[in-house]
Simulated assay, not measured.
Amino acid sequence: MPFSCPLCHAPLSRREKSFVCPQRHQFDLAKEGYVNLLPVQHKRSRDPGDSAEMMNARRAFLDAGHYQPLRDMITDILQVRLSTQATAVLDIGCGEGYYTQAFADIAQQHGAQTLGLDVSKAAIRAAAKRYPQVMFCVASSHRLPFEDCSIDGLIRIYAPCKAEELVRVVKPEGVVITVAPGPRHLMELKGLIYDDVQLHPENSGEIAGFNVEEKQSLAYEMALSGPEAIALLQMTPFAWRAKPEVWEKLTATDEFRCQTDFSIHCLQRES
Rank of each mutant, 00 (worst) to 15 (best):
L70W: 05
A229M: 03
H25T: 04
K243E: 12
R125T: 13
I92T: 09
G97C: 06
P22M: 04
A231T: 01
R14Q: 13
P48F: 03
G191F: 00
F27A: 11
T84S: 12
T253G: 05
R14T: 09
V134T: 06
Y220I: 10
I157S: 09
L115C: 01
A159I: 00
P132M: 07
C258P: 01
S271N: 15
G226H: 10
A88R: 03
I124N: 02
P132S: 08
Y34H: 06
Q133N: 03
T260A: 00
A88L: 08
R130L: 05
C149V: 15
G182N: 08
L37A: 02
E213Q: 15
E164F: 01
P145S: 03
A242K: 09
L218V: 07
L224W: 04
K162N: 11
R24A: 13
D261W: 02
I124L: 00
Q41C: 12
Q259F: 07
S120L: 07
D148A: 13
V35N: 07
A126S: 13
G116I: 00
R156D: 04
P181M: 00
D195T: 14
F27E: 04
D118G: 06
E147M: 11
V170Q: 06
F210C: 00
V212T: 05
Q198L: 12
T260V: 11
R257L: 11
G111D: 04
E213W: 10
S51C: 08
G49M: 10
H66T: 06
L29M: 12
C94R: 07
E245H: 14
W247Y: 07
I264H: 00
P48S: 00
A112C: 08
L62W: 02
L189D: 05
P11L: 03
Q268S: 10
I157H: 06
E255L: 13
L224C: 08
A242V: 01
D195K: 10
Y34G: 05
P201D: 07
L232I: 11
R241E: 13
D63Q: 03
R168H: 01
R24L: 12
F136T: 08
L186V: 04
M1H: 09
R46P: 10
R184Y: 13
G205P: 06
E16S: 14
L115A: 08
C21M: 09
G97L: 10
E221T: 15
T100P: 05
P227Q: 10
Q79E: 15
A122P: 07
E255M: 13
K215I: 14
K171H: 01
A180K: 13
Q234C: 03
V167A: 08
V80G: 01
L199V: 12
A128D: 06
V169R: 01
E214V: 12
R143Q: 15
I230F: 09
L224Q: 07
F61V: 02
L117D: 04
L199Q: 15
P22T: 10
A122Q: 12
D91K: 02
A102V: 02
D195V: 06
A123F: 02
S271F: 14
I177S: 03
Q85H: 15
G116P: 09
H110A: 06
C149R: 14
E221S: 13
K215G: 12
V212H: 00
Q109A: 14
N203P: 01
L199Y: 14
A30L: 11
